[in-house]
């Protein structure tokens, strides 16, 4: 067809933008877009016109794993080499299954590992953990210890989340601001933790998230150590 003819192009571009142009025809039009400026212009006009239809546009807060995924996918190709080298080394260390908490703290002795195993160290960087999260064998409970300086915020709490692969975050309860807690895990929490590569901390109201999902900013994300 003659893609310069606006009478043909306008409805075709509309079909494309609306999404009702499907299959091979859609692929074909995408190729046309790369070489026919009039087709691109017609498409952009429809995009602008129809974007206003996104009506109520109820924003939904993505779970923390989405941004982490973007970061790790782009790190491979997009980061400056100066930054990517140490990062890759760090990722390699995780991929190799090194137990991060044991490395960072250098505290755990073999006997204790039988009973209590590290889950993650939470802190701004590996050298300065604020909380250490360990688990009793079989995930009966979590032991969470404050090992760094917790910045206290009036009326706010820090909530711990499991980030199960392909699912919504599951609360693991509020983090202590001092000392240590031993927290039994429910079946839901245990299952979530078993399929989580990461756990995260968000800032929530004093009583914790009112919705069951993180509502405040996610301030920390940490990888879950290899399961023993």
């Amino acid at each position: 067809m003659n893609y310069e003819n606006p009478d043909l192009l306008t409805p075709l571009a509309a079909d494309y933008v609306l999404g009702t142009l499907r299959g091979p025809a859609r692929r074909r039009f995408e190729r046309v877009l790369t070489r026919v400026p009039a087709a691109l212009a017609a498409t952009l006009r429809w995009e602008d016109d129809l974007a206003g239809l996104n009506g109520a546009l109820e924003p939904v807060q993505p779970s923390a794993r989405v941004w982490r995924g973007i970061e790790s996918r782009l790190a491979l190709t997009a980061r400056a080499p100066a930054r990517s080298a140490p990062r890759r080394a760090w990722q390699f260390a995780l991929a190799a299954g090194l137990v991060t908490v044991a490395l960072i703290a250098g505290l755990l002795v073999r006997e204790r590992q039988l009973a209590v195993q590290p889950v993650a160290a939470l802190g701004a960087d590996a050298a300065h953990p604020v909380w250490q999260v360990e688990r009793r064998k079989e995930y009966v409970s979590l032991r969470i210890r404050v090992v760094g300086a917790v910045e206290r915020r009036a009326g706010r709490s820090y909530e711990l989340w499991a980030l199960p692969k392909g699912g919504a975050p599951v609360s693991l309860g509020l983090l202590p601001e001092e000392g240590a807690v031993d927290r039994p895990l429910s079946e839901v929490q245990r299952t979530a933790l078993l399929v989580s590569d990461k756990i995260a901390v968000s800032i929530e109201p004093a009583q914790g998230s009112p919705t069951g999902s993180p509502t405040g900013p996610v301030i920390l994300v940490a990888s879950v150590s290899a399961r023993g």
């Binding site: 974007a51 206003g52 239809l53 996104n54 009506g55 109520a56 546009l57 924003p59």
Partner: peptide
């Protein structure tokens, strides 16, 4: 489906 016109946020 409602097709509401974009509100304040948008």
């Amino acid at each position: 489906p409602s097709l509401q016109v974009a509100g304040t946020a948008a």
